[in-house]
Write a protein that binds this DNA or RNA. Structure first.
Lengths: 190, 190, 190, 190
DNA sequence: CATGAATGAGTGTTCATTCAT
DNA sequence: CATGAATGAACACTCATTCAT
């Protein structure tokens, strides 16, 4: 039940160091940063990088997956709060602001996503994400705060298209405009 | 009276071919496409590329400038129509749809803009763009169709953040949501 | 007897302009300066350069030849002065100093000679050069100022090996040391 | 006590092969020889060249440094012999001949130095070089064989300006002339 | 299992030379 | 006969990936 080999501990530690370095370097220099640079930053040799991630695409993908895991976890926490009685629309607003600001801080996500294009979500992740979000949306619609035709995909689009490379003020303005379309009155009584 | 040297005939033809090829190749493979590939696509040798555009940055910049010129021209045409009596808000909607669809078709614009980061608009272009857009916005606000605090920059943000790499249907939905925030009722009488 | 065609005048003028520009540009930027740069400096198109000098080597060779012509002429003048009664050893010293300083100023000569390696002297030039120099040497030996075994080649070596890329003071010291070997007492009564 | 990592075995072997190939190729074709050519001659890929020498300048510099190390070592050996009782002036003559002949055999030194211009001597090397030479010079002056104003720099100039690309006979003649200026009688009693 | 040296195709760019206008 | 646009082989250098140690 416990860890069978102590060697595995190093491997895990290395994987963590590599991911952290990759996140940092991609944020800093964009996804074109050389593998050698990431390896240096992680304090390991390139060979070790390739043992953990057979391809650069895999490494960048892992960085994105890591990020999406954080988002997913946050959404699940918000869903739990809503089920505990919190106001759904408020949770949504907070969630959206925080996620978008996080994406802005850590450019790796979008930069990488743009370059590599692929979808880096696990099926399991997608299910967790969609499930939790659906519950929050349903609650907000029931409260009469959210337009009934709003879906999870709308929020995904919002996060993916947020101008993360702009000033916070610009981003806030952008969010204000965009979220207006989500409310009931935003598009009439639909 | 006419152009003194007909010598330039080939040169002009080549420049056109190069720009067309660059536009196409950047659209196809992104702005990282090799100069050799663009040269091949244009049917010229690389040296010819470099005679016309001393740097890859220059070539990509030219492609972007070309595109922004088209956008600018369309906005000016719309402004003229509005001044001729056309419904301002309708022109805006049409304009936005068309521009976003054009950007979607020709990924070179956004891809290139992202990679190169720089502002590739001429000052003259920016003035033409801003001026024409201001006039349309004023008309729409006067009609009571547009929220009074909407600015040119809001539209720029819209164009820059539109999900150009998604299906047209997704994009249409995105636009619907976003444009709701621009209308008067979209955010109350605020 | 007169110039048959006026067209030739332009050609000559162009050749002169090209050689002047080549000399200047090679002095300025070394013999690796592009042909286009030389053409620009000469105010002609590259094609014209190639009409006059079918090869870059030819052009650089011509610059060197031009230079060697100047040296040759100076030596002939000195020889004439010696025959007119001037002190031979003094003429030699002056000659050597002036030539070496000229070579230092106009690096084209040595730089080009080094890169291209070849001997760029006309046979005629060589004869003139050797002849005049021989007469000065003979006079200096007769005066008892020059060691009898000194030859024209010794002086050529001196010019070719002078440290043209050093400070004038260094060069002066070098010349002092070197010329000591030429005098009668410099190596005993031989 | 010994070197901890035997891993470097190939690396050292490669470095040696690369330096040897560089020396040879530069000697053969001048310092403009392509990196690919050197890599081929060394039997490695270009990438390996660049791993060992991040820049062409670095590689050429290393070749020069290697050579200057040899000269320095020889001078130190000569200084030791002089201190052991050997005739200083004889050591100087031998040294100069050998060094100049070595430079002639290995054109890389001068060719490279000329193109790249930089000083490739370590400070340590310069100290060793100057120190040893000073001792030999002092001894020769004490013997009355060398003009008292001769300095280390004079010898450096001699080595740097020697006609290494000429026939040995020409070089010998050149040295005879030049060295005459170094002796006491060569320029009178000063 | 980590290391880091080696690989080599690929990148942007230059420049001597040719040739249509 | 001049022009200058076009050519394309080279060049220095980079970097994802492999593999001997």
């Amino acid at each position: 039940m416990a860890h069978p080999r102590p060697l595995r501990a190093d491997a895990v530690r290395n994987r963590t160091k590599i991911l952290a370095a990759a996140r940092e370097q991609i944020t800093l220099h964009g996804p074109d940063v050389p593998m050698d640079t990431i390896a240096d930053a992680a304090g390991v040799a390139v060979g070790t990088l390739y043992r953990h991630f057979p391809t650069k695409t895999d490494l960048v993908g892992a960085v994105i997956a890591e990020h999406s895991e954080i988002i997913t976890a946050e959404i699940e926490a918000a869903a739990a709060r809503v089920e505990g009685g919190a106001k759904a629309m408020e949770e949504i607003t907070t969630l959206v602001f925080r996620t978008v600001e996080a994406a802005a801080r850590d450019r790796s996500v979008k930069a990488a996503a743009q370059t590599l294009g692929a979808a880096h979500y696990t099926e399991v992740q997608e299910e967790r994400f969609t499930g939790a979000m659906d519950r929050i949306i349903a609650a907000a619609v029931a409260d009469g705060d959210l337009h009934p035709d709003v879906t999870v995909d709308d929020f995904l689009m919002l996060i993916l298209t947020a101008p993360t490379d702009q000033e916070p003020a610009v981003r806030a303005r952008w969010l204000t405009l965009f979220l207006a379309g989500f409310t009931v009155q935003g598009r009439g009584q639909g």
